[in-house]
């Protein structure tokens, strides 16, 4: 069982292979998530592969590496080095609301139950929970609040509708 949640449901097996910095590429058809630095260095190679392509973005590198290829990416993973680093929330909203990214937006790293509600509001639809997190229990977090006080990637503020 993976620790992955997609569209608010647990995912038994992650269809994506998350590639390390020095790991050799998997077979060409395999869906792969490439670290941003590696993607930047070998763009042509990765874009030419037949398999689905995803890029993993760290908080320091920002959105630069992916902005001009968004329609070629089926997934963007945004890394939370610690759950206290909130940059990923802004990246997610920018990708969804400004750049209209339609693919899977996956939170990876120190992803904990108590931040899922906010992450989902910012446009994440997939969550790779940190080790030790209880996937089933975490699903409840999407229901933490019944309304919203501000517009975000999930639409206008529902508390504003008088």
């Amino acid at each position: 069982m993976s620790r992955l949640i997609k569209d608010r449901r647990p995912v038994a097996e992650d269809p994506w292979h998350s590639l390390g910095a020095d790991e050799p590429p998997p077979e060409p058809e395999r869906a792969v998530i490439v670290p941003a630095e590696r993607f930047e260095a070998e763009r042509a190679l990765w874009l030419a592969r037949p398999g689905s392509l995803g890029v993993r973005i760290g908080p320091h590198c920002g959105l630069e590496p992916v902005l001009d290829v968004l329609d070629r990416l089926a997934l963007i993973a945004i890394e939370f080095p610690t759950f206290r680093d909130g940059r990923g929330y802004s990246y997610a909203r920018l990708l969804r609301e400004r750049h209209r990214f339609q693919g899977e937006l996956r939170a990876v790293g120190d992803v904990l139950r108590d931040q899922l509600f906010f992450m989902a509001r910012c446009g994440f639809d997939a969550f790779e929970l940190a080790p030790g997190q209880d996937v089933e229990a975490a699903l409840a977090a999407f229901e933490d609040f019944p309304y919203t006080y501000q517009p975000a990637a999930d639409g206008p503020a529902t508390a504003w509708a008088r």
Partner: peptide, 12 residues
Amino acid sequence: QWACFHPEFSYL
């Protein structure tokens, strides 16, 4: 109200 539970700005 806008700041309350702001999803983007809770981990500044």
